[in-house]
Amino acid sequence: MKRALFSNIWLPVALLLPQLVIIAVFFYWPAGYAVQSSFYLQDPFGFGSTFVGTGNYESLFRNNEYLKIANFTLWFTVIVTFFSLAIALILAVKADRVIRGAKTYRTLLMWVYAVAPPVAGFIAVIMFNQSWGPLTEFFALFGYRFQVGVNFNDTAFAMILTSIWKQVPVNFIFFLSGLQSIPRSVREAALIDNRSASGRFWTVTFPLLAPTGFFLLIINITYALFDTFGIVDTVVKGEPGNNPMTLVYKVYVDGFRGNDLGGSSAQSVVLMALVLALTFVQFRLVERRIHYT
């Protein structure tokens, strides 16, 4: 980076200071605090704490409930990521191809980006209302009694469906912009070289979308892990009980409701490690292998 730089000394410091103070107080301090408390056992009534080493972690991984939630989170993440990527990809490919109404379709397919996850959860609660929800009635047509909030699988289904609904637009926007950045002439060359539309898709379009896809993969995993909190919380109506929940929701429930700061912090640290690992994968794989120019 060779730039005709300014050489003042205090100005840049003054410019950086607000940002640095804020991240020091509200990022590094809490992050460090989480790591630290994960090694302590806190008295439930707030009278001091005892150092327990890795005790919180050990009890975490011996806790069957935690492992069950981790397992659910894994499946939840895989399913939400796969379907929201796949649906968005199909829609983006079609939206990229049509000429008539292209702009209208684009708007109709992306506005949900702006809907807050808990509002999405609210809509799910209405859709799956026990006595008159349209989706409950739809399942009743097949003789299935759908019970969100009571039946574990039904609740999980509602969460997953809602999370997909909420995430399709982001993926759609990125896939469409990825498609539109493929040079027109490259696609035309493929049109001349290959008569099969699906052949062209798999040998030219799809590989050229791979960088976008990998980027989105990480975004979607992060979304499913963290941003679905609002959906989970509203679908279970704030009453976790025996309902499915994700790891982040568990951190919240244990720490905020159950006042188990040590255990909750250990869970936070596990999640941090997970995110760091994901980022590492992103840098290693995406940056190195899947860039063409």
């Binding site: 035309e188 060359a189 001349i192 791979a210 063409y292």
Partner: peptide, 20 residues
């Protein structure tokens, strides 16, 4: 007739090579 079935070959201004 689709481009692929016209028995033609085309050279583009920006070459349109498949980057991957």
């Amino acid at each position: 007739i689709d481009p692929a079935d016209r028995d033609i070959a085309m050279v583009f201004q920006n070459y349109a090579l498949y980057p991957h």
